[in-house]
Nucleic acid binder design. Structure first.
Length: 291
DNA sequence: CCTCGCTCCTGGTCGC
DNA sequence: TGCGACCAGGAGCGAG
């Protein structure tokens, strides 16, 4: 499941390939992948064809490529199973929903396949709007309600702690709320909670200072995943061009139910929560109640 | 305004 | 061998 680190690897891998490239043709194989586009497929195709792409940007799990048409961008969300694959002109991929043919001034012709098995992801053309807290920056309108992510220079730690404490809910639900803090999905939420020794359903207003270590662990988990994703151009290109699209992770809690906790040895537990799995150590992450 | 549950989706896997 | 049930979960939406 692509969360912030995976999306960032895609963004970085796309950057050298698409920046300055011109879109020569667009094919929409499945209109459901345009669910978030405001208009029919013809509108999407018309607005993209012939346009030039600028350097890709990201906030949380949202990725967008600003376009030469003023104040507009191609917004990409990978959803559960989305991939953006850079190919040569002759290569196709199963379950390609949208295809862009590009012409790059240096790299020549390039094919960009948007592949998505479960069609939770999407592409859309959207307008860019200034951000509230930093009007010199702009983001797509459909990203404007998303909070900054913890790797964003503009992320305000104290503001986050205050907003977290005001919530009347469990901490994992809060971590997954992209309007509070963006980029965290189910896997890295479980990993950060395990590292900070916090139970997933602990009330946010009971965290107190452990919220500080929780945010710190979120950043550490992201940093490790990014390090695994590689930072060289070649590695990034392989990710974007690769078969799976996602790099292998070393996980301590997620998906490890029944296996020993790497910290205390007690078998890890998996419970259903919010219609998905929560993986944790019942000893290291005991249930606590509000103070 | 806030919280929470439902819905969208497909393909791999499992059990009968 | 075939087929139905189940499972994975990000994000938007509407109910309360």
């Amino acid at each position: 499941m692509p969360e912030l680190p995976e999306v960032e690897v895609v963004r970085a891998g796309l950057e050298p390939a698409v920046t300055g490239a011109r879109v020569t043709s667009v094919t929409v194989f499945d209109e459901r992948s345009l669910r978030r586009h405001d208009g029919p497929r013809e509108d999407f195709i018309d607005r993209l064809t012939g346009i030039r792409m600028l350097a890709p940007e990201r906030r949380g799990k949202f990725l967008w490529i600003p376009l030469s048409a003023p104040a507009s961008a191609l917004v990409v969300h990978l959803g559960m199973s989305g991939q953006v694959l850079l190919r040569d002109r002759d290569t196709d991929d199963p379950r390609t929903r949208i295809r862009l043919e590009l012409e790059h001034p240096e790299h020549g012709p390039l094919r960009l396949n948007f592949v998505d098995q479960r069609i939770f992801g999407s592409m859309a053309i959207d307008r860019l709007v200034p951000t509230k807290d930093h009007p010199a920056q702009s983001v797509p309108s459909q990203v404007a309600h998303i909070a900054r992510d913890p790797l964003d220079e503009g992320f305000d730690d104290e503001h986050f702690f205050a907003a977290l404490a005001r919530r009347r809910t469990g901490v994992k639900r809060a971590l997954l709320d992209q309007t509070l803090v963006s980029g965290i999905g189910n896997i890295y939420a479980d990993e950060a909670l395990w590292a900070a020794r916090v139970h997933y359903n602990e009330p946010t207003d009971a965290l107190s200072r452990r919220a500080v270590s929780l945010l710190s662990e979120v950043r550490a988990v992201f940093a490790r995943a990014l390090a695994e994703g590689g930072t060289s151009f070649d590695t990034q290109y392989l990710q974007v061009n690769g078969e799976s699209g996602y790099f292998a992770r070393s996980l301590n809690a997620y998906g490890r139910q029944g296996l020993p906790c790497p910290r205390c040895g007690r078998p890890l537990v998996r419970e259903r929560f919010m219609n998905r799995g929560s993986h944790f150590c019942a000893k290291c992450q005991p249930v606590r109640r509000a103070a």
